[in-house]
Write a protein that binds this DNA or RNA. Structure first.
Lengths: 107, 107
DNA sequence: ATTATATATTGCAATATTACGATAATATTT
DNA sequence: AAATATTATCGTAATATTGCAATATATAAT
């Protein structure tokens, strides 16, 4: 008990839920927004911008990384995080499809 | 410790996260998909369709209701659940905006 | 090599979520 | 009024998430 029964749902349903879960925290929304607004992609200052501790930010970044949304490369001592545009579009499509496939003739 | 620090984020960021949280469970995705596919909206059989217990389904429905996505009216002994089209479009726009506002010139 | 700076990992406590049995509430039917 | 059917709520156990201090790791600069 207590654990999500993923096995009774379809792959697509689990996929959407998994992606949504990453967006289900304001810190991760804020991180994605911040990174996307940067011209360059040196994101050293997320800790100051967001206002959470460095380990916490690091963990959130890791959650975002898990669904393939971040490309990270070292540039000097700083880690350069960028949003993976291909993956971003994929997720956009996933959500678009989900929101589009809804029946209108009800109630 | 342990609780999300909502107060350090913007209303919009918290809003998106809150909506995403509802979609962050495959059962709720499945429920929304099922309801949207029905011509009529008598959704008594969700328990059989999804494969979770009646209390669990009821709780999930409640989560969906909390963000205003469900219109529910009693029709006889059965509860008639429908998706609120207005609200649905709002959420669709919220996500669309979020996914659109992303910088392209990076990395 | 040592120091400084940036990010990752570990360990742990607080809180939240998920799921279901038992039970209550509500409405229909007999 | 009693029985039936459907949904909601309560209580509780299992699991997951959130957040941070402490520590480890990695690169840069001195």
């Amino acid at each position: 008990m207590g654990a999500t029964k993923t096995y009774i749902f379809s792959t697509k349903q689990n996929e959407l839920a998994k992606i949504a879960k990453v967006l289900a925290h304001p810190a991760r929304v804020a991180i994605l927004e911040y990174i996307s607004k940067q011209d360059a992609c040196i994101c050293t200052d997320l800790v100051d911008i967001i206002g959470l501790s460095q380990p916490t930010i690091s963990q959130h970044l890791n959650e975002i990384k898990k669904i393939g949304l971040l490309k990270g490369t070292f540039e000097g001592k700083n880690l350069c995080y960028c949003i993976d545009q291909e993956r971003w579009k994929e997720l956009q499509d996933t959500f678009h499809l989900f929101f589009s496939n809804i029946n209108r003739n009800c109630c």
